[in-house]
Simulated assay, not measured.
Amino acid sequence: MPPPLDIVVLGLSITSSWGNGHATTYRALVRALDAAGHRVLFLERDKPWYADNRDLPAPPYGTTRLYDSLDELKDEHADAVRRADLVVVGSYVPDGVAVGDWAQATAGGAVAFYDIDTPVTLAKLGRGDTEYLAPRQIPGYDLYLSFTGGPTLDRLEREFGSPAARPLYCSVDPEAYAPDPAAPPTHDLGYMGTYSDDRQPGLERLLLHPARQWRAGRFVVAGPGYPDDVAWPDNVDRVDHLPPAEHRAFYTSQRWTLNLTRADMVAAGYAPSVRLFEAAACATPVVSDWWEGLDSFFVPGEEIVIARSSEEALSALQDTPDDERRRIGERARARVLAAHTAAHRAEELVGYVHEARAATA
């Protein structure tokens, strides 16, 4: 068995899930790496909006350290970066270009960019926006780890010169997400997600319009950032923010949950969201919009229901027999446990590191 790795992760946040999906991904991955015996140091820029909303200020796995500035990062953590077998720089890290340049210049082992927002990143680069990554840096990362697979990986290698673009999809911690047979559903359809302009038409089409059509149905939307002018039907409950500790109860209280995908992710395809895996792990059946590659994660009609219109969403809610609805959720859960847990991602990551080492040996 190969020896455990020393890994340093410079990520957006692991201590706060406020307004970002990065925290749950990092928590699951670091926990799985720690359980497998690897030593992980997570470095997070101390930002006020996260400091005011920390739902896991001291993660009980790996080691987490906050830093106030680039100078503090370099002064306090250069030795750890030099000694690490792997240094990971994540998307949306504050001063990410400067952090990436420093990591590439300082690291003694492999250096990876972990893009939790790959289609958004590539769209930004296309506009000349280098908020957290510059095109010139991509060839200098030994690995480009992407939340998005499929043709995007080929593009990263062909157009941007990545030595090795590999999928590292989001995942789920099965200890935190599981069915709750004692929890009777209180809502027919729910959705969890921070507001975004490009997801809102899907929310209108697949949840709000069905809610207006089916006044006896119960619906719920959780997530911050929704503007005051959204016309919420009376049968739609609103929750501003749910910390991860309450996600399982949210999913298990629903007969169905809705998965919506940002426009850049739809255009790229092969971009499952963490909410998709979380809900499935709870055996809550999912109604989802469609994007290329979705059928490589779940079998439509058997493990997930695709809705392209309000009528299709409403038909799933009203016409699917309860025993078939439960079977869809159970089949989706089996698929997640077989291929999409954090332990699977940790194993994949370690494999990529050994692959990168062999390529440079």
Rank of each mutant, 00 (worst) to 15 (best):
P57N: 12
D71T: 10
D129Q: 06
Q137C: 07
P60T: 10
A78C: 06
L43N: 12
L43V: 12
D71G: 06
A107M: 04
L168T: 03
P94V: 06
A80H: 08
L156Y: 00
W49H: 11
A51P: 05
V87Q: 02
D68F: 02
L86I: 03
V99Y: 01
A164H: 12
D52T: 09
A103T: 05
D154E: 11
G96P: 00
G109L: 00
G96V: 05
G62Q: 01
A51S: 08
D71C: 04
P119W: 03
T130G: 02
D101V: 00
L70G: 08
F147T: 08
L168H: 00
P139W: 04
F147R: 01
Y61E: 10
L41F: 10
A105I: 08
A78D: 12
E131R: 13
D117L: 05
A84K: 07
P139N: 11
D115E: 05
T63D: 05
P94H: 07
L70V: 04
V99I: 15
R65S: 03
K47T: 09
W49A: 02
L143C: 10
E44M: 07
G140E: 13
I116Q: 09
R82P: 02
S91C: 08
G62A: 05
D115Q: 02
L125F: 01
D52N: 05
D95N: 11
F160A: 12
H77K: 11
P163H: 05
L125P: 01
L153F: 07
T130L: 06
I138E: 10
D46C: 06
G126R: 11
L86R: 04
G161R: 11
S146N: 08
A80W: 04
